[in-house]
Amino acid sequence: MHFQHSDSIWRDFPELAAGALHVEGIRSDVSVADAVERFQAIARDVLATRAEGELAEIQAWRRTFARMGLKPTQYRCASEALLRRFRKEGDLPSIHPLIDLCNAVSLAFAMPIAVFDVSRISGNLEVTRAGGDEVYATFSGETEHPEPDEVIFRDAEGRAHARRWTNRQSGYSAIHPQTTSALIVAEALHETAAADVAELVAALEEAIAAAWHVRPTSMLLSRAAPRFAFATHESL
């Protein structure tokens, strides 16, 4: 199984830096409270002096959304939405240990992180332009179809696992208590994105290993090396 960005995405967004991790052995009965608090403290310190919209990481995504024809204050990348909520409420609700951890890391690095249940992905997963006939399931169970040319995460069956690139994931492949295998993707487009994504991936690897006592496989993606291949239990 593999994850990648299409050639057209790399062509249109050459400043993109991305990292992907695959982890097996996920359980919902672990505590990540200490790690979450550590990463949230970083975000608190940043937000004490600047609003999320002033951060270079967020500004880069706003410019990208504008280039895609989206109003940046109507459609926000996932990390901006998280930071905005965190600034207003002072905390985020607990959902699942892996989601809680990834949300906290996303806050600390101000970069969107997508987390997918691998068992719900058919074949390979690619960030690409939509044809418009793909199927997207909302968290409330409704079905949508992406707009033609919209950037989506698409699998082999034509299912969209995220819409508007980093704006909204699908409920279909969301992490749930029975999830054991997860694909994690972080993306950024700001000036120091490559170095910052590498730091984020390393931080996630360390935190996952500490909580679940398993070692993720990971890769930093670029136009020259765009494909992250990984083995699942089903493919072994």
Score class of each variant (00 low, 15 high):
140 S>V: 06
41 A>V: 09
154 R>S: 12
219 M>D: 04
64 T>F: 14
230 F>D: 03
55 L>F: 14
21 L>N: 03
131 G>P: 05
11 R>Y: 00
21 L>R: 04
228 F>L: 07
25 G>Q: 11
149 D>A: 15
225 A>E: 11
214 V>R: 07
232 T>R: 10
83 L>C: 01
184 I>Y: 10
90 G>Q: 04
210 A>W: 10
123 G>Y: 15
137 A>G: 07
232 T>Y: 10
77 C>E: 03
59 Q>E: 14
213 H>C: 13
3 F>Y: 08
229 A>R: 13
190 H>W: 03
5 H>G: 00
168 R>A: 14
106 S>H: 10
144 E>I: 06
19 G>A: 02
203 A>E: 07
63 R>Q: 13
195 A>I: 09
120 R>I: 10
184 I>N: 08
37 E>W: 09
234 E>V: 05
179 T>K: 02
49 T>M: 12
15 E>D: 14
193 A>K: 02
172 Y>T: 04
42 I>T: 15
48 A>M: 10
55 L>D: 09
232 T>D: 02
23 V>F: 03
221 L>A: 05
57 E>S: 15
10 W>V: 00
214 V>Y: 00
122 S>R: 13
203 A>L: 02
100 D>G: 04
95 I>D: 07
157 E>D: 15
228 F>N: 05
99 I>R: 05
31 S>V: 12
84 R>A: 04
197 V>W: 00
141 G>K: 03
116 F>R: 02
137 A>N: 11
176 H>L: 05
96 H>E: 11
24 E>T: 15
39 F>K: 03
236 L>W: 13
70 L>S: 01
177 P>D: 13
226 P>R: 04
111 M>S: 15
21 L>C: 08
121 I>G: 02
210 A>Y: 08
155 D>H: 06
70 L>D: 00
88 K>A: 15
89 E>P: 00
82 L>M: 07
2 H>Q: 04
58 I>W: 09
74 Q>S: 11
55 L>Y: 10
62 R>T: 01
193 A>N: 06
156 A>V: 09
90 G>E: 03
143 T>F: 14
210 A>E: 12
108 A>Y: 06
94 S>W: 04
222 S>A: 09
151 V>M: 13
